[in-house]
């Protein structure tokens, strides 16, 4: 009986391990970080989110869209309705057709989503030597290693090892699969002037923008974990009660 249980557990473990390792064959081992949003009780550090938003708007949005995030969502990370309206108004949204049948541009409002820097993929490629800067809305979920990988990527630019030739237009990155990435190192020391006066080192910006992108990919994370704790505790208690009932009812059979 116990052996069967052990094998069953091993099967589950193997299934999970298999699922986890399936695509990891070519990926580079990424150092693991501690994130405020990790673990059973994780939450997003609000300061990091706001700084990360600054990094996205100051550095990344020139090339990368965030088209699944609406300006109104920024109220969830601590901005007021007025601040959100102001940010939205900085963007130009194509709307229409008007009564003349023409499309026109208007200022963004909170219900709009972040405006992509390029109108379509082909324009994005044309402006970036044929490479397409991907949308970042779910990037943290779309790469093995998630937030750890993104942080490693941002901080992984360095000189190529001796003897390695990096073609024109590519950069060496220690953690990008294949080690050659078309994106030049986006973060430079003091590249952003943080509103909260934190020193903008590359590591700091990498951490902040990764936290922001983790939120962008999983805005429901805090609610999910909170609910999860309550639900699992409830089920635990209910299962305990059901076990007691089961033993009581079965007492005349055993």
């Amino acid at each position: 009986m116990r052996r069967k249980l052990i094998v069953a557990l091993a099967a589950v473990g193997l299934a999970v391990a298999v699922a986890g390792t399936a695509a990891a064959v070519e990926a580079v081992k990424v150092p693991s970080q501690t994130w405020s949003f990790g673990g059973l009780f994780g939450t997003f550090d609000r300061g990091a989110l706001l700084r990360g938003l600054q990094v996205y708007r100051g550095v990344c949005q020139g090339c990368h869209s965030l088209k699944l995030v609406a300006f109104r969502n920024l109220q969830e990370i601590g901005l007021t309705e007025d601040q959100v309206k102001k940010i939205a108004a900085e963007y130009e949204v194509t709307d229409g057709p008007n009564d003349q049948g023409e499309m026109f541009k208007r200022k963004g409002n909170p219900s709009d989503r972040f405006v992509p820097p390029f109108p379509n993929e082909k324009a994005a490629r044309a402006a970036n030597n044929g490479a397409y800067p991907p949308d970042l809305s779910v990037m943290v979920k779309a790469r093995d290693g998630g937030a750890d990988y993104l942080y490693a990527l941002m901080t992984g630019y360095r000189e190529p090892p001796a003897g390695m030739q990096v073609p024109e237009g590519m950069q060496y990155n220690a953690y990008f699969p294949g080690h050659q990435i078309a994106m030049p190192s986006p973060l430079v020391e003091d590249g952003v002037e943080y509103a909260d006066k934190t020193r903008a080192t590359v590591a700091q910006m990498a951490r902040d923008v990764t936290t922001f992108l983790a939120w962008a990919a999983e805005p429901e994370l805090e609610a999910r974990k909170r609910m999860g704790v309550k639900v699992l505790l409830f089920i635990l208690v209910l299962t305990g009660m059901l076990y007691a009932v089961k033993r009581k009812i079965w007492s005349d059979v055993h």
Binding site: L238, L242, A244, K248
Partner: peptide, 18 residues
């Protein structure tokens, strides 16, 4: 035993509602 069954059923009903 009846109380246990009733309590469990009530608990379960709350869960089902949620």
């Amino acid at each position: 035993r009846d109380f246990l069954i009733l309590a469990t059923a009530a608990f379960g009903a709350v869960g089902a509602g949620a």
